[in-house]
């Protein structure tokens, strides 16, 4: 990280960290969660340092980022609940119940996939989940969606690309 950026972030942190944490505490009603999220917000800021160039309204930027994190967090809770609920339903038929670490990894991956799929058009999203998650063949998906296999391949490529563009973290984790 160039020195100028490090300096900018340091200044931002010093100037606004306390304020952001207070803002989050009022929203969450919980000091520990607020501290965690404030920390995460700054991490996000560092990760996307391009956004810092010419930052005019640092507090507006911080709250926007924090808001996104809040939404992610609630979605993550939704994901975790739905995942665990379905897992509990399947519990008796599973050869082995996943360990807490496996569940955590799955929930983490799922929240990234969710974010990545947000920008994928519905049909492409469906083709993507059927193929890569449910392991249906491209021919089966073509039949189910009433399109040609060539079209299914287009959907899949579109979904892959879209996921990559909107959630690079998903790709980086995998490497």
């Amino acid at each position: 990280m160039p020195a100028a950026d490090a300096h900018t972030i340091h200044t931002l942190y010093v100037d606004h960290h306390g304020w952001l944490q207070g803002w989050l505490r009022r929203r969450l009603g919980n000091a520990a969660d607020a501290a965690d999220l404030a920390h995460e917000t700054f991490l996000r800021l560092i990760a996307s340092r391009d956004a810092l160039i010419g930052l005019q309204e640092p507090r507006a930027y911080l709250t926007t980022t924090a808001r996104h994190l809040l939404i992610d967090r609630s979605r993550r809770q939704v994901i975790e609940q739905a995942y665990l609920a379905e897992l509990a339903l399947l519990a008796e038929t599973l050869p082995h119940y996943p360990s807490p670490a496996e569940i955590m990894a799955a929930v983490e991956a799922l929240s990234q996939i969710t974010r990545a799929l947000d920008n994928v058009p519905p049909r492409a999203r469906e083709a993507f989940l059927r193929h890569y998650l449910e392991q249906q063949t491209q021919a089966d998906i073509a039949r189910a969606l009433g399109v040609s296999k060539r079209m299914v391949q287009k959907y899949l490529a579109q979904a892959l690309l879209c996921c990559h563009l909107h959630c690079p973290a998903l790709a980086e984790h995998g490497l």
């Binding site: 994901i79 739905a82 995942y83 665990l84 996939i113 989940l129 998650l133 392991q135």
Partner: peptide
């Protein structure tokens, strides 16, 4: 790499909970 993350969830034990979670979110 991105696909690897998705495929990791595709086993018989996890595909259904994963789909349920994705649908919910």
């Amino acid at each position: 790499g991105l696909l690897g993350r998705v495929r990791a969830l595709s086993g018989p034990a996890t595909a259904r909970p994963a789909l349920a979670a994705l649908a919910a979110a």
